[in-house]
């Protein structure tokens, strides 16, 4: 089947199988910023923005994304750069495997919450697992980014 996706501003047509998931479609087409951590909707590494909403690409059938707008970190370069700076300043990045997914989640958080409380931030981010950081520095980095202390 053919589907058309607007990925990071560019319409691209893909031929996909009915049981193909968007994460594989993207990675097989060299959109490698999206990571496969579990392939079972349990880790958040594969988070993308589908029509501006964070979803898990590993569990979204590609056909269902037909005619949708998809943003990965490449499509949000400016914000991602700022988040990266905040992460750097707080020492929040370690292996980084979780980071592209986390960055998109943070962007979505900023869009949906004006002044999130600490608790709201944590509850918003809870689906994104990180085995390296212990989360504390990430949390500080998110706050730094939201408060624009860059």
């Amino acid at each position: 089947m053919n589907i058309r996706l607007r990925i990071n501003g560019k319409w691209i047509t893909f031929t996909v199988k009915p049981d193909e998931f968007l994460l594989d479609t993207l990675r097989n087409n060299q959109i490698i910023s999206v990571k496969k951590g579990c392939d079972g909707s349990t880790c958040g590494s594969c988070t993308i923005l589908l029509n501006n909403q964070p979803v898990l690409a590993c569990s979204l059938l590609s056909v269902r994304a037909d005619e949708s707008t998809i943003l990965t970190v490449e499509g949000h370069a400016e914000e991602v750069e700022k988040i990266a700076v905040a992460f750097g300043k707080e020492g929040a990045d370690q292996c980084g495997f979780c980071n592209p997914g986390m960055a998109l989640m943070i962007i979505a958080l900023k869009q949906s919450h004006k002044n999130p409380t600490d608790d709201e931030i944590k509850h918003y981010m809870v689906g994104n697992l990180c085995r390296c950081s212990g989360y504390q520095a990430q949390f500080k980095a998110i706050k730094r980014y939201l408060e624009e202390r860059l």
Binding site: V34, E74, V80, G91, G96
Partner: peptide
């Protein structure tokens, strides 16, 4: 407190990991 030298590139999704 120097930021990691590659953290930004990784967050930006640059080719970095083995499968990439």
């Amino acid at each position: 407190k120097i930021p990691s030298i590659d953290g930004k590139g990784i967050m930006q999704g640059k080719r970095a990991f083995t499968d990439d």
